[in-house]
Design a protein around this nucleic acid. Structure first.
Lengths: 226, 226
DNA sequence: GTATTATTAGAGTATATACTCTAGTGAGTC
DNA sequence: GACTCACTAGAGTATATACTCTAATAATAC
């Protein structure tokens, strides 16, 4: 594997593990047992590394959220979208954590991320539209669909942060993909009122599969309050 | 005004303006035209300053979210809660921005914030309960109410971050309280399906008041996608 | 082989950051 | 007038951080 790719891989790994703020270029170089000079031969600066990682992330999500327009949408499709998006979120989880700072330090990234967000929102909205066409949810006005899509986006992109802050111990390490996917339970909660009678039970059963267990969330109190 | 209080005030101001990560203790001291030594006479370290600011924030929100149990809830109450919570969010907006890092660097804060979150979630859930008692929304099972409360929390606490990242320019400064309160539009979107026929129109009219105008959101594309 | 280019090591640098230390000052107390 | 004590200034420090520079080595092209 090329040094350049190794740098990207290690950076992502360290960023995810410790947070971008806590990982310096020297850490990355040390982790790979290469010199800082070597790292700076391949990348102009830390921002460049982050930007390239973002491009990978963007590509992955764009790939996942590609909506086939030649056929109707199924419940399996919806499950796939949800699972995939949370997979992506997990693989690049450092990104949303320090998002604001990252965008402030790189204008390219700011612009690209803005476009990325809008594409994602459009995809979510389109998914709702196709779910309605398939008779899974009731059709909605465009206004409402837009606002709902935005809420879905907010829940998805911030579920991870919620989990991290709700955990009592520092325990950043002990967060699992399984817990993350309980975010799907929250997303499906948003859909409940719009489900058609024909699909209601099936979707509710699907949702149940992602319900957070008290045991897993431990002493965070989630599900216990009032 | 006492130096100690001036430090807290200036810190909050600078943190909100530039982000905690970009504000050093030396900046704070310089901004107040006092010496770093003076600052460190009043606070053991930067974390201590942040912790005290959090305590203020906590107090404020707890005050806002105190639910009167001796009478029914009105639509005005709900409006007040929403307005107040977003006011609080605005005044201490630096906090949610760097939350994860802050919690990682201060165990006291982590524990307190966890409790704070659970209190807020309980309050939101209780508000839903009382809205149902007042005939404003349909009553819901506790499970659903909990999940909905969590979604409301996710939308509220992350609306600010969304706005900041959706804006094209760096423009961190040009974010306004008015824009922030468009988050209320998003929160009310969550309630729509549960509104009773008696209140539906009134709540929808209220929601309309917070609708983001295309002009204000400018070129973010929000509301335009698909 | 020789020339060129890509890659790497590793010491080094300018700056920043959180924080410390010493030496006070000024207002009140007895 | 001596003493205390809350408060303040300002120089200083240890460490970290992002990044640079020079020189050397490996790979490739001709």
């Amino acid at each position: 594997m090329k040094t350049r790719d190794k740098i990207l891989l290690s950076s992502l790994e360290l960023f995810n593990e410790r947070g971008e703020r806590n990982v310096t270029t020297n850490h990355i170089a040390a982790h790979l047992a290469i010199s800082p000079g070597n790292l700076y031969y391949h990348f102009r600066n830390k921002s460049d590394i982050i930007y390239e990682i973002f491009l990978e992330y963007e590509k992955l999500v764009d790939f996942y959220l590609d909506i086939p327009e030649d056929r109707a949408m199924t419940l399996d499709d919806m499950t796939f979208y949800l699972e995939s998006v949370f997979d992506g979120l997990w693989s690049y989880r450092f990104f949303h954590r320090d998002l604001e700072y990252l965008l402030d330090s790189d204008q390219r990234l700011r612009q690209d991320y803005r476009d990325f967000t809008n594409r994602c929102l459009a995809s979510i909205s389109r998914i709702f539209e196709k779910l309605a066409e398939a008779g899974i949810i009731e059709p909605q006005e465009e206004d409402l669909r837009s606002a709902m899509s935005l809420n879905v986006w907010l829940v998805i992109t911030n579920w991870m942060a919620f989990l991290k802050t709700a955990h009592a111990a520092e325990a950043s390490a002990c967060l699992t993909l399984t817990e993350l996917k309980q975010g799907i339970y929250q997303v499906l909660t948003l859909e409940i009122p719009y489900l058609t009678p024909a699909y209601r039970e099936r979707v509710m059963a699907l949702r149940e599969k992602y319900r957070p267990s008290l045991h897993e969330l431990g002493d965070t109190g989630t599900g216990v309050y009032k």
